[in-house]
Each structure stands twice: as C-alpha cells, then as structure tokens.
Design a protein around this nucleic acid. Structure first.
Length: 580
RNA sequence: UGGGGUGUAGCCAAGCGGUAAGGCAGCGGGUUUUGAUCCCGUCACGCGCAGGUUCGAAUCCUGCCACCCCAGCCA
C-alpha cells in the first residue's frame, strides 16, 4: 500500500478528442467511477489491480484490452498493477507461454509491480486454507465420479442432490485430503468440494470443486503437487494475498462472484478484494479464443502464434502494428458491460493514425514494369541524378536520397495505354500524357514495347527538364503523381501482403466450423519488388509508409540488408477504388 | 427453462428526470508532388416493444420481447 497524494483522486475528465500518444486520456466509465468513489470515501488508500492470464496460449487483442484496462486504471489512479499467472492447471500450461506473455506485456509498454507473480506461489497457503474450510465444516472430500457429480448437480430448473459424501467427518476429510496430496489416489477419483448449497439457482454454488488430482509436472512447482486448486479456489485468495482492491474480469465470471465472495468470507484472508466485470472485446473477421487460435497454429494454417495474420499481440507486432496503436485502439473503446463486436476498421484506423504520423516515407514498386527515360542523357550528366526527398511530409524526419536513372521501375497498375481514360478516373501515366514521378521529374509516356504475347515489357518516356521541385511549363498538366524506383540503383525485396484470415464477419458464430471461413488468399508473397536503396539498411521492425501503397514493416526475423523482407501492415485509406 | 448480464445510428458507445456527447464507417466539399494526410460540412423528431408516473422520461414504475453467459474434476 503506498501513498496517495491529494484528497481529490481525480475523476478523469474526458478529453473527448481522440487519444493522442500518452497513456492518460481515458474517458470515465463505470469502473473508474467506482474507484473514484472508493478512493474518496477512504475505502481504500490506493488501488491495486492485476492482469491474470493463464499461460496456456499467446495473448491476443482481447487480452490487450484487459491489460490496458488494468494497467491503465492503476496508472490513472496512481496505484499498481500486478502481472500474475493463473497457473492452476498444469495440463494446459507451459513455460514457453509464460515467457511469451511477459514479453508481450512489456512490449505493450507496461511494467508490472514487483516481480511476476504466480498462483502457484500460494499453493501452500491454499492448501492450509483448504484445511481451514474442512475444519469449519465448509468443505469435504467427494468420491463421486465426474459423471455422477454432474448428475447430482441437477439442472437449471431442478435443484441438485447432496453428495453421499457430504457428511464425512472433519477428521476423515482431513485425512483424505492429506492422502490426496500424497498421491495415494488416482486422478479423477476424488475432489475437495466446498459445502455450500446444492439447491442454489447459481450453479457455481452447488458445492463447487476446490481441489482436483492432477499427477502432472507443473512448469513452476515441478512435481511438488499432485493436487491443484480450481480457478475459483485460487482467484479470490490470490487477489486477497496481493492486496488487490479491484479485481476486474470479464462478464462470464459474474456468476462466480458470489462464490468469490463466499470464499473470502469464510477464509482468514488478509484483505477483501471486490470483483467487477466488463464486456470482453470482440473484433469482427477474427477469432479471439485461445482454443481456436491454437488450432490455427497446430493445424499449420498459419506460421505460428506470431504469424502476422494472427490477432495475437506478437502477431500484430510482426505485422507492423505499434504498441502505441494497439493501446490507442483499446483506450479508445469504452469499458462497458455489453458484449459487442468492434469493427476491425477501428483497429485499422489506429495503426494508420499512428504510422501516418510517425512512419518515414519510402518508395517501393510491388509489380514492376520497366520505364526508360529516352532523353535522360540530354539533360542529365552522368548516369545518376540524386533526388532529395523529405522522409516525412509534415514532420522533420530528415531527408533521403533517391537515385534517378535512365531505367526505372514503376508499378504496372500505374500505366495504361487507354488514352480515353478521363483525368479524373485515372490519375496515373497514360500513353501520350504526362505524370509526375514522386519527388522527381514530370515525364511523358511516348511508346510501349511488348513481347510476343502482347504483354508490356517496357515503357519509353521522356522527362520534362526543370520540373524537379518546380511546376511544369504552361500547358503541361500531369495527370497525377506516381512512385518509382531506379532499376539500376534500387534493391530487390520480398514483400508479403496480408489479408484477413477469415472471410466471414463472425467465423465464431453459427453452427458451422470456423475453419471453413478461412480466407485462402490471406497471404501473398511478392518476391520481385523494388525498393529505394536506403531501405535495405532498415532495422528489423522499423516501419515505413510506402507511398501510395500503405504501411510496411521490415520483418522482425527475416529482414536483412542482403535479403530485405517487408510485411504489409495495412493499406492506405482508399476512397477511390471502392466504387469499382 | 433456473440464475446472471445486456439492449441508444451500419459498428463501439456517453447519458444518472430538463429536451440525444464522442470515435469508427459512410456521404458531400476544400487543400495537396501520396487517389494518403489535413480541413469544413453532413449523418437518431429518436433511445428493444407496450403501457404508466411526471409540467417534463433514453433516464422512474409495470409487463413483454430479443440476444449473450453458466449447468468442466477449464480459466
């Protein structure tokens, strides 16, 4: 518990404008209102929250929201947030996931309080508390099989029946629990249950399981235990031990709250945390369920948990998302209690917004066709004229040098022989007409050369002298501006274009298997792209706007100066191609 | 069906008895050596439905409807 300064723990006044860089600008929501009140009333001096992932998979965009909520609230109110692994089920968990999760949280820019914590840190205490409940007559060892227990539990409309083992003596229960711990019994043969109410309308209170037998090695505790606490018997107690004041989770745990409170009530815990629930974040055209994401990985539909098409934190990172853009996205979504589906366009907006502001510009030709400047030597001495272009149109990010040569590449889609195309409809190069080469000359297309199959192999053009950084003479009106790369000085690169993994807006929903909605064309590898020379020196994970194309990142693992590889994060907003 | 939760624009939502914020998407226009950015304008006579209370209701009351979650020895 640390100090808490002013008497007025600021209700965050909302700056309704969209989030800018910083951590702060959260609008008021029902949880921050509660926190404000708790702080003001003196119910707590400062707040402690926690982010409690189970290490059974990678973190995804939904977790990012939970992380932003928990760490964000702590930061906003000057409290602390713990990272705690809810590692109560060794059969699903792995150290590799622990490591990946820590890396993701750090990358997002959050720092947890003290050391990382584990539910397993408290296993001794939990065991002692289990004995305490037995001693109080509030728990018993039950020998029912899973199927029997399910029958005994009853149905929504029918109350359950008491287990025949419900009335065991304290001594017998103590003895049995001890022997469960010692490994005397088989998995599934016995469990420890709380003695609450088999007729409760809330299923979670029909004598919930506290401990079950799992003879498995645990990634943190090794072979020390062969009984493991259930989620319910761990979560509230962990919160209490850590002094968590506001335990924020998702809606599906609302039904567990009475049990959470029952346990805190009946155990000699050091503090009394409160649980609050908010709606899970869902995004359309994607799935956010560790089980399903794991299936995509296991079935090799994608390249791993960090495949750029995955909605995982590490996937988005590899795709080129910035941590800031992910945080802006999450912070821009209000915390509410309804479970809605956010349009992926909202996520795309965040990354464009960030990268437009912060990514240097560069040129890359994705589908090259050669363009030769036939009058090059008439106006330019030597083989190369170096053009100088700003790295960013608005922010001073330095300049880059672009070698302009007689042979260039432009994109096939930026040229047409169809002279009837209106200037409004086609603002690119047309045979016999002018176009501006970005940061260089205005040129005119004179003729095309084709192969026997009728494919254009080369465009012959002439430059208009004196047009670098200057308007062309009267009468010459370029149709538009296109990008280019020197065919002789530019570098070859591989560019991967990603599209959404699913064609269906909600692959999760409906009766059919989500795998049937997979987008077969979610990855396209272009290995004959040309980039301006400076780009090969880009550091892995550096991001650029390839002008007129979109935002790209030098691949975290596979990019090198000898083999440049860029991933497309997201295209530029495109208001024109939509009609066609 | 028993319990829990939620219904405000295409999507996410604010709203807490005084006459419907904001963001995304869309649409119209302006600037532009990126069909980007930026700028301006536009976008609910209406708040799941039906009644009621009130001078006044998205907000309070009653009834109904729809959707989500729970019924694992998962979390």
């Amino acid at each position: 518990m640390s100090n808490h300064k002013s008497a007025t723990p600021g209700i965050p006044h909302n700056s309704s404008s969209s989030d800018t860089a910083g951590a702060g600008s959260k609008v008021s929501n029902f949880i921050s209102q509660i926190i404000s009140e708790d702080l003001q009333s003196g119910k707590c001096q400062s707040i402690v929250t926690r982010f409690p992932p189970e290490p059974n998979g990678y973190l995804h965009i939904g977790h990012a929201k939970a992380i932003c909520v928990n760490f964000g609230l702590a930061e906003q109110f000057g409290g602390q947030c713990n990272l705690r692994f809810d590692d109560t089920n060794p059969s699903k968990e792995e150290q590799a996931y622990v490591d990946a999760i820590k890396a993701d949280v750090k990358w997002l820019g959050f720092q947890w309080a003290d050391d990382v914590k584990y539910a397993s840190d408290y296993f001794d205490q939990f065991y002692a508390w289990a004995q305490h409940l037995i001693a109080e007559g509030k728990a018993y060892v039950c020998d029912l099989t899973a199927e029997q227990a399910s029958e005994y539990r009853g149905w929504a409309t029918e109350p359950g029946k008491d287990s025949p083992y419900r009335q065991r003596s304290v001594d017998e229960n103590m003895d049995l629990l001890e022997r469960m711990k010692e490994g005397e019994f088989d998995e599934g043969s016995r469990v420890l249950r709380a003695k609450i109410d088999m007729a409760s309308p809330n299923m979670n209170l029909r004598d919930p399981i506290l401990y079950r037998i799992r003879k498995q090695t645990h990634h943190q505790t090794g072979d020390k235990w062969c009984i493991y606490p259930s989620y319910d018997f761990a979560h509230g107690q962990e919160d209490a031990i850590e002094g968590v004041t506001h335990s924020i989770c998702t809606l599906e745990f609302a039904d567990h709250r009475p049990l959470y409170e029952w346990l805190l009530e009946h155990l000699p815990v050091p503090s009394k945390p409160k649980q609050y629930e908010f709606g899970r974040l869902n995004v359309n055209y994607t799935v956010t369920s560790k089980r399903k994401l794991k299936q995509l990985v296991d079935d090799k539909v994608v390249d791993g948990w960090d495949d750029p098409r995955m909605p995982t934190i590490s996937g988005m990172r590899r795709r080129g998302f910035t941590s800031q853009s992910i945080r802006n996205f999450c912070n821009g979504l209000p915390i509410s209690k309804s479970d809605g589906v956010v349009d992926i366009a909202q996520l795309e907006f965040s990354i464009r917004e960030d990268l437009d502001k912060n990514a240097p510009r560069a040129m890359c030709v994705l589908d090259p066709v050669k363009l030769t400047i036939s009058n090059f030597s008439e106006y330019i001495g030597g083989d190369v004229e170096t053009m100088v272009a700003p790295a960013h149109p608005k922010t001073d990010m330095g300049q880059r040098q672009l070698p302009f040569t007689a042979e260039l590449y432009i994109d096939r889609a930026d040229f047409s022989e169809d002279t009837s195309l209106s200037r409004k409809k086609f603002k690119r190069l047309v045979l016999g007409d002018y176009v501006r080469l970005r940061s260089a000359y205005v040129i005119r297309a004179e003729e095309v050369i084709k192969d026997s199959g009728g494919n254009i192999t080369q465009i012959i053009a002439t430059l208009v002298p004196g047009t670098v950084g200057e308007n062309p003479p009267e009468g010459i009106k370029p149709r538009g501006v296109i990008h280019w790369v020197s065919a002789t000085e530019g570098k070859k690169a591989t560019v991967r274009i990603y599209d959404r993994l699913f064609n269906h807006e909600s692959p999760d929903k409906g009766e059919s298997d989500f795998m049937q909605y997979l987008n077969k064309d979610s990855l396209q590898v272009l290995d004959n792209c040309w980039v301006e020379p400076g780009l090969v020196e880009a550091e892995p994970e550096s991001r650029f706007q390839f002008e007129r194309e979109g935002y790209f990142v030098a691949d975290r693992y596979e990019h090198s100066s000898s083999g440049p590889v860029f991933n497309k994060a997201i295209g530029l907003r495109d208001t024109w191609s939509k009609g066609s």
